[in-house]
Each structure stands twice: as C-alpha cells, then as structure tokens.
C-alpha cells in the first residue's frame, strides 16, 4: 500500500453506451468529491449540450462543458464539447482544438488522456468505459506509464466491449471492475489515497 500519492484529477473516456455508464458512475459520487473529473464521451458532432443536463440530474456534482483557458475545480465534472478535442494546456487549463479526428473521433479520448497525463502524471486516474472502437487505449497506456492509476470497465458488463478490451490489451490495468463498482471504488481511491492492488 502506498500513501505518498495524492490523486488530483480523474479522466474518463466512453463511447457507445456511455451515457448510461457515465450516469451510473457519477450517481455514486458525493458533492464533496475531492478532485475534478474530465470526460470525453463520443457524440454526434451537432449534438448540443443535452448530455450536460442529463448528467446534472444524476449527480450532486456540477456538470458543465469545458471552456478554453479555465482552470479545473474540485466538485466539478467537465465534458468535452461535441466536435472539439479537449486538451490540458501546459499550465493545467483547458484548451480546445478542431485538429483532425483521432481514431475517427473528435473529441478523442487519447488526446485528453495524453495531455492530462503530461500535466498530472502520477496523480491522475484514468478510466475507460463502454465503447465500440479503440480510442482511449493508447491514452490509458500513457497514464499508466506516467505512474497514474488505471481503471477499466469489465468488458462483460459493457454495452459495447471493444473499447474496454482494447484498453486492457494496451497496458497492465490496475483494476478491471463491473460498472456498478467503479464509482464506489473511485471514491475510496480518492478519499483514502489508497492504491488497492498496487504491485
């Protein structure tokens, strides 16, 4: 067990089936959750801010679309806006970009995870949920490589299993969990600052 690392942020990537999975995870977290959460959910490029409303109804945390140049705050959940990549700038503020799609996706999970990992390195927790592509696998591997913590939804409990499966193949994941356990586990991890199963 290690107590030296204080987790400072959580990044979550999800795609097909992700709205339900995100609702489930966020609904189990309290308003005083200690660190910010940043989410890339693949959406249609012209979808509006509907997901913000959906998730705000599921969680006491404050859900918003990420705005460029803003700094992250605890108790907040930030969503990548549709049709923009979401990046963390070198000073930890948000940046947006319409660079070409990565793995057919914009926003791309890899882009968020890789840039967040550069800023937060070992204090970042990366989570890959349900999805029908391979986005996020490379990003999670980088989170892991930088010393961060990795969680993947058990593909058997995912509406679409290929994204979590790809993530599991890409790196040695710290915890593979059924969907219902991810929120409580994350809470324990952040509150106790405790790396269960650390090798």
């Amino acid at each position: 067990m290690s107590t030296e690392t204080i987790f400072e942020a959580v990044v979550i990537g999800s795609s097909a089936g992700g709205v339900r999975a995100l609702s489930m995870v966020l609904s189990t977290l309290p308003a005083n959750f200690r660190v910010p959460i940043i989410i890339v959910q693949h959406l249609h490029p012209h979808s509006g801010a509907g997901l913000v409303d959906v998730l705000n109804h599921k969680t006491p945390l404050i859900v918003n679309q990420a705005e460029e140049k803003t700094l992250l705050e605890a108790g907040h959940v930030y969503l990548a806006p549709p049709n923009y990549h979401l990046l963390l700038e070198l000073d930890g503020s948000f940046a947006l970009s319409i660079m070409p799609k990565v793995h057919y996706a914009r926003p791309s999970i890899d882009v968020l995870f890789e840039t967040a990992s550069e800023f937060y390195d070992k204090t970042l927790i990366g989570i890959i949920l349900t999805g029908a592509n391979h986005d996020g696998a490379q990003g999670l591997a980088q989170v892991k490589q930088a010393g961060g913590y990795s969680i993947v939804q058990d593909p058997n409990t995912a509406e679409a299993e290929s994204m979590p499966s790809a993530a599991i193949k890409a790196c040695e994941v710290d915890a593979v969990l059924p969907l219902t356990d991810i929120g409580p586990y994350l809470l324990q991890l952040v509150n106790n600052n405790y790396r269960k199963g650390q090798r």
């Binding site: 990046l87 963390l88 700038e89 070198l90 940046a95 660079m99 840039t115």
Partner: peptide, 9 residues
C-alpha cells in the same frame, strides 16, 4: 500560441 495543440502537431 496555446502550446498543447502545437506540441501534438
């Protein structure tokens, strides 16, 4: 320029 995008490119 914002460096994160530049760096990726």
């Amino acid at each position: 320029y914002a460096l994160a995008s530049i760096k990726r490119r």
